[in-house]
């Protein structure tokens, strides 16, 4: 598994991806600096950091997009360049290939997504507990999204477009207006963890932290199982 992990990690880390996603993260840091320089009251500043900077920009944009780019490429790149055959035609159990793919995507997505969001919260003047909440929420969201998007690269050819459509339509629109849909939203659970750990105002349709952890854990396991099934049944060119 370590061999597959290293191989996939090496192919995932391209200069273009890291620079483009880091640039988005840098925008977050600039927003953080702007919040710090503003003359907002302490309560308004806390709200701006929690709701707009970390919850809105970080957990709703930077984290899912970063996870999408790396996770969908983990198996999408080898499928597109037709090197998947060299991975597929090995006696390694499929779940181990999937686990290696997830670990590789997470290894690169986590620092690229979490670091700028955390730094942005810190430079905006977030207290320590809110910074901790940011790390926790962003980490759980990255884990959930990378697992979810891992199989997308195997299932569809334009994984980025499909993934962005999912984020924009489901996570940012449907899950906000529908309480039922919110039960199936990674964003809602990760923002719930952010508010709970950060001890700030809860988002709309928030869940308990224990529920959030369980649901995100189930999401990861279910997504990995589905990806394993997809990989097992894939027609490899």
């Amino acid at each position: 598994m370590a061999l597959v992990y290293r191989l996939l990690l090496r192919s995932l880390v391209t200069r273009a991806r890291v620079l483009a996603l880091s640039a988005i993260g840098l925008v977050g840091i600039l927003i953080g600096l702007a919040i710090r320089a503003s003359d907002l009251s302490a309560a308004d500043r806390s709200l701006a950091i929690t709701r707009d900077l970390v919850g809105g920009f970080g957990l709703n944009l930077v984290v899912p997009v970063t996870a999408l780019v790396f996770a969908s490429a983990a198996f999408g790149d080898p499928t597109d360049d037709r090197t998947m055959v060299y991975l597929w035609l090995t006696p390694i159990p499929r779940w181990r290939l999937v686990a290696a793919g997830w670990a590789a995507a997470l290894s690169v997505a986590a620092p690229v997504a979490i670091l700028p969001v955390t730094v942005a919260a810190a430079v905006a003047g977030a207290p320590g507990r809110l910074v901790a909440g940011t790390v926790a929420g962003a980490l759980l969201a990255t884990m959930g999204y990378t697992a979810l998007f891992l199989g997308l690269g195997l299932l569809v050819r334009r994984a980025l477009a499909w993934g962005l459509a999912y984020v924009l339509i489901w996570e940012l629109a449907v899950a906000r207006i529908s309480k039922g849909a919110a039960r199936l939203s990674i964003s809602v659970y990760s923002r719930s963890v952010l508010s709970d750990v950060g001890q700030v105002v809860k988002p709309l349709n928030a869940a308990a932290v224990s529920t959030s952890l369980i649901v995100l854990g189930v999401t990861v396991v279910a997504a990995m199982a589905l990806t394993t099934r997809t990989l097992t049944r894939a027609d490899v060119a």
Partner: peptide, 15 residues
């Protein structure tokens, strides 16, 4: 799965 350890393939694609 075990068979794949006993198979060697030169695939058509160049990549």
């Amino acid at each position: 799965l075990a068979l794949r350890g006993r198979l060697g393939l030169v695939a058509q694609q160049e990549t």
